[in-house]
Design a protein around this nucleic acid. Structure first.
Length: 433
RNA sequence: GCCCGGAUGGUGUAGUGGCCUAUCAUACGACCCUGUCACGGUCGUGACUCGGGUUCAAAUCCCGGUCCGGGCGCCA
């Protein structure tokens, strides 16, 4: 559209055309500085009034912050300028005028509440901090995708409209489907198993999941992005190795490729968690929690870990860690149990000190055991026929996991609300934009 | 689902019964200013979530609604 030069690619002596947003105007009287912002940075433009035409002066007068302009001119070296260079303009053209009453301040002089920022996300995206978050999120997904390809995975897409839930169907969003009962899928779980256990063996998917729980926390959403992995002929131990490798590669890539964005977020020298992550059993997790005086209610074997318990264990571990050997009864039916002690499962969780990041395990691939497991959890195998039936035709041993992409970004960037890392979050009361 | 908290100019805030004709910052307008970099200075514009109640008097107390934030449960 325009043959333009990016701000960070312009150097002294260049005759350039730049386009972008008016970040700020500083009128000193005879001299006016305009700070122009594009996706690459901010450039100071100098207007000396006595050299300007009345036309240019009147344009300058209408330029509210966040208006979009096109400027041509000469880049000069100027040590008094913030970036060491400034633009001496020849022409200025307004591409889009902005209303002066901005719904939030992209220059960051006045802070805005998260809810205001989410309501006006388009304007919020003009803040360099917000942009840094999504640039990093993209790098995380790019590097993870790359790693999956490197370990021979195929990227798949499974349906988001389903007839039945993963673990029952209580917390699903019902939708109208030509007169039939249907739901938004809460997880690709069953489908990715069918693909991995089909002929493809190694698969991954990065896609949306939907949960209808009316929770109200800073780490839950009703629409989230899940990074799913599933592979045939690997056990839960190997699946854990893949999980920690994926986390590790994400940290390394961001550290290496996003120094500018990390700096913007005051995260210079991002610390990279060391692998392998410690593995602790469910039993010792309970022990750690119960050994703390901060725990208000002691846990009994078979209880799920409370948020408080998770925090206590997290601060004790002080790094990413796995919890293994969970009681079978609190893991889903598709998780395989240890043959020698069936009350213990081959399920695992990968925890960040502040929250759960990954849930996975070795799957039950034996038809009879799977039917038993379904029934033990009060589910009707008939409801899962499309899935269960396939286990009659040579389902290989397989394992996998699902990782909360939003939580990965949130925990890496030490943000206190998952909505910060989702462009247009869906929560209990937010459905737009 | 249970529980707690909040709503004041465009934005972010101060204000716990009369001192509020409501503070400050930013924004916007006018004027001054040729090296700002959160530019500065002077003046100005602009707001109490809605409905009901208590009171001589309500932004402030009470009840209800709406909207929002958060904790727990559960999970990714």
């Amino acid at each position: 559209m325009y043959d333009r030069t990016l701000i960070n690619a312009s150097s002294p002596g260049d005759e350039i055309t730049v386009v972008g947003w008016v970040h700020e105007v500083r009128d000193l009287g005879g001299l006016t500085f305009l700070l122009l912002r594009d996706r690459s940075g901010i450039l100071q433009v100098k207007f000396e009034k006595e050299t300007l035409s009345s036309e240019t002066l009147s344009i300058l007068d209408q330029l509210y912050r966040e208006s979009v302009v096109l400027l041509t001119g000469m880049v000069v070296s100027e040590k008094r300028a913030p970036t060491g260079i400034e633009l001496v303009p020849k022409t200025i053209e307004i591409l889009a005028l902005s209303d002066p009453n901005l719904p939030l301040d992209p220059s960051g002089k006045v802070t805005s509440e998260l809810s205001t920022r989410l309501d006006k996300r388009c304007i919020d995206l003009r803040r360099i901090e917000t942009r840094a978050i999504f640039e990093i999120r993209s790098e995380i997904q790019r590097s993870i995708r790359q790693r999956f390809y490197d370990i021979d995975c195929i990227e798949i897409n499974t349906p988001k409209i389903v007839a039945t839930g993963t673990e029952g169907g209580t917390d699903l969003f019902p939708i109208a489907y030509f007169g039939k009962e249907a739901f938004m899928n809460q997880s690709p779980q069953l489908f990715k198993q069918l693909v991995a256990g089909g002929g493809i063996e190694r698969v991954f998917e990065i896609g949306p999941i939907f949960r209808a729980e009316e929770h109200n926390t800073t780490r839950h959403l009703n629409e989230a992005t899940s990074i799913d992995f599933e592979a045939a002929f690997i056990d839960h131990e190997m699946a854990m190795e893949v999980a920690e490798d994926i986390i590790s590669i994400a940290y390394h890539s961001v550290s290496e490729n996003c120094p500018q964005q990390l700096h913007t977020l005051s995260l210079d020298g991002l610390s990279i968690p060391e692998t392998p992550f410690p593995r602790i059993s469910y039993d010792s997790a309970i022990e750690i929690a119960n050994g703390s005086s901060d725990l208000s209610e002691p846990l009994e074997w078979g209880d799920d870990l409370s948020t408080q318990a998770e925090r206590i264990i997290g601060s004790t571990m002080a790094t990413h860690y796995f919890i293994t050997d969970w009681p079978s009864e609190i893991k889903p039916f598709y998780i395989q149990n240890h043959d020698e002690s069936p009350e213990i499962s081959k399920g695992f969780d990968l925890m960040h000190p502040s929250m759960e990041l990954v849930s996975g395990g070795q799957r039950e691939h034996r038809y009879d055991s799977l039917i038993d497991a379904l029934q033990n959890q009060g589910l009707n195998p008939i409801d899962f026929e499309f899935y269960v039936d396939m286990f009659r035709y040579g389902m290989p041993p397989h394992s996998g996991w699902g990782m909360g992409a939003d939580r990965l970004v949130m925990s890496m960037l030490q943000l206190d609300n998952v909505r910060e890392v989702v462009l247009f979050p869906r929560d209990r009361n937010r459905l737009a934009p």
